[in-house]
Amino acid sequence: MSLSPRIGHLSPDEIQEFLEGGLSARQEAWVRGHLDVCPRCREEVQEWQGLFADLGGLGELVPREGFSEGVLARLRLNPSSVPRKGWWFLRLGPRRRVDTHLSARAFQEYLEGRLGRRAQERAEAHLAACSPCREEMRRWRRLWADLADLGHLSPSPQFAEGVLLRLRARSAEAPAPAPSPWPSIVRGVGRAQRLLPRSPRGWAVAGGLALAPALVATALAWAVFSHPLVSVETVLTYLLWKTSSALAGALAGAGGGFFENPLVAGLYSLFQGVARAPWLLGVGSFLFSLGCAVSVWLLYRQFTSPRESRRHAHVPS
């Protein structure tokens, strides 16, 4: 309990904590100081002391003779009610129904049809046998019927017009956005922004989609450069030669079949180099498949599971 020096009187909680010795030494000293100067709180504390004394003086009531025997006899009649020792799973089993009146919650759940089948059967059996609960149920039903009769209240006939008038006034008040000097650029940026992910999950999907080609590129680079005759320099030379010959071929308008095209031939020989290390190709394919699977899973999660922001409609403040 926070109890700091302030102007005012002691609250009931503070007085009770004080009387029960639940305050710290500093708080208690403060309360005592306050009581010295505040007659109203002194009177209040005296009243609480009286209540505490009355409660303390309630004393113990003695049950009638034979009470203990009665309890033991009931225990013999209902052995399942005796707590058993042993492993917890040995104690699992159908729980015994305690034959007490239905609670307020049970009445409401019953009327709402929210009780399970077995609980409803038990409640109905109890209602059939217990007249106070039947009477209580009648009152609950009456409350239900009264609540259902509440109905709607009508606003004044000018209500709708009032809304539209306000709406028009607000629209007129709102300043029109200043025209941009480069509208096409603004539109393009706006469209690009719409393509960007708007949540961490969206970024995860984008990352997942980017992962697969990156993994494939890495695997291919590894396969190519792990060959003993291949180095960065030779690959660049090779690519330059192939590109220039392809361009020369294209410029010369050389015909020929598809496979005689220098660009296709170059790519073919490149893959031949990769194929010389089949296990690396296998690893690359596996990683590609894995990347694709992760991407598909992320996409699936993105579009099927609800996000917090999607569960509720946007509400203007």
Partner: peptide, 18 residues
């Protein structure tokens, strides 16, 4: 707008009024 008002002015007003 008028149609939405016709549909919901009663329920919304009732809730707020109560």
């Amino acid at each position: 707008f008028r149609e939405l008002l016709r549909r919901y002015q009663g329920p919304v007003f009732s809730l707020v009024y109560r």
